[in-house]
Design a binder for these strands. Structure first.
Length: 295
DNA sequence: GTCCAGGCAAGCA
DNA sequence: TGCTTGCATGGA
């Protein structure tokens, strides 16, 4: 990913440190921020610049966590950043409880990826990004999400732009959406936006549901099927038990466990049963391992 | 040119 | 209920 020359970093605060209970290497930090969970981070000379919700930060690797800074004058993002990155370490404990001791295939996927974690994104952000995701490569999703922010989003600190609101998307002209390279997904996004516009509480109203029911309710939205619903539950609602099965995970389960001929629903049930309450975290290790190519 | 991508929804048996 | 097909677009 090339460095983005348009971002003005003159007016930024001094660097500060955020300790992570489970530190990460530079490579794993890149995998976390730009490995197919969020599509909002770009490489900078020191690390990564991006937005999470309405907040903007620059992150860089540090021995015991991350260095970070933010645009001057914006509200302090430290508390939100600590939550976004699971600084407290709940996922490190969840990862240790995965069955890697008895599962060599999972152990191999986790090897060298200590500290890989699920970002705690906002539900709206995860939903919009994964509405874009169907039948697209990660690099192309990144382009679509960037176009949506650039064309339809409000300005944020640091010269970045927010993702558009559902209200904005609901009244966007067809041509404007098509210009975002959404293809046939444009209609799904428009229709979901029309359902959610004027309902800022939609996510809060679902937040108390058990994961299976949450996914079923998400799947009532246009353009949201089982896989996208699982991604939104995992990345947007912090449900570590959600287990999205895409082409990579499909391939991983066939390769690792000999599940040839199983359909996506069967594979999802296998994942939930085999990996347990943090199956979604296991999924992220497998996804990273498969995409990085043969070891 | 061909195949495939962090799939979904409609049509069909 | 479960499988097949069309869908827009761009990378590999």
């Amino acid at each position: 990913m090339p460095v983005d020359p348009d971002i003005d970093r003159a007016g930024w605060t001094a660097w500060r440190e955020l300790a992570l209970a489970e530190p990460v290497s530079a490579e794993v930090l890149g995998e976390i921020l730009d490995g197919g969970q969020s599509f909002r981070w770009r490489r900078s000379p020191d690390g990564w610049v991006g937005a999470f919700g309405p907040r903007v930060a620059e992150l860089a690797p540090a021995p015991r966590g991350v260095r970070w800074r933010q645009p001057r004058g914006a509200p302090d993002v430290e508390v939100a950043l600590a939550r976004y990155l699971d600084a407290e370490g709940a996922q490190a404990r969840a990862a240790d409880a995965l069955p890697w001791r008895s599962d060599a295939f999972l152990a191999r996927a986790m090897e060298g990826r200590r500290g890989l974690r699920i970002l705690r994104q906002e539900p709206d952000e995860a939903l919009l990004a994964f509405l874009c995701s169907s039948n697209k490569q990660v690099a192309q999703i990144r382009v679509m999400v960037a176009e949506l922010a650039d064309r339809l989003g409000e300005p944020l600190a640091g010269g970045l732009r927010a993702l558009p609101t559902w209200e904005r998307l609901a009244r966007a002209p067809e041509a404007e959406l098509r210009a975002c390279r959404l293809g046939y997904r444009a209609a799904f996004i428009r229709d979901t936006a029309r359902r959610l516009a004027g309902r800022p509480d939609w996510a809060a109203a679902l937040a108390g549901l058990p994961t299976a029911e949450l996914e079923a309710r998400l799947a009532e939205l246009p353009g949201v099927g089982p896989k996208v619903a699982a991604c939104v539950a995992l990345f947007g609602f912090g449900r570590l038990d959600a287990f999205p099965v895409d082409t990579w995970i499909d391939q991983a389960l066939v390769e690792g466990y000999g599940l040839d001929g199983w359909n996506r629903r069967q594979l999802a049930r296998f994942g939930a049963a085999h990996y347990g309450p943090a199956a979604g975290l296991a999924q992220q290790f497998l996804f990273a391992a498969m995409r990085s190519g043969p070891a």
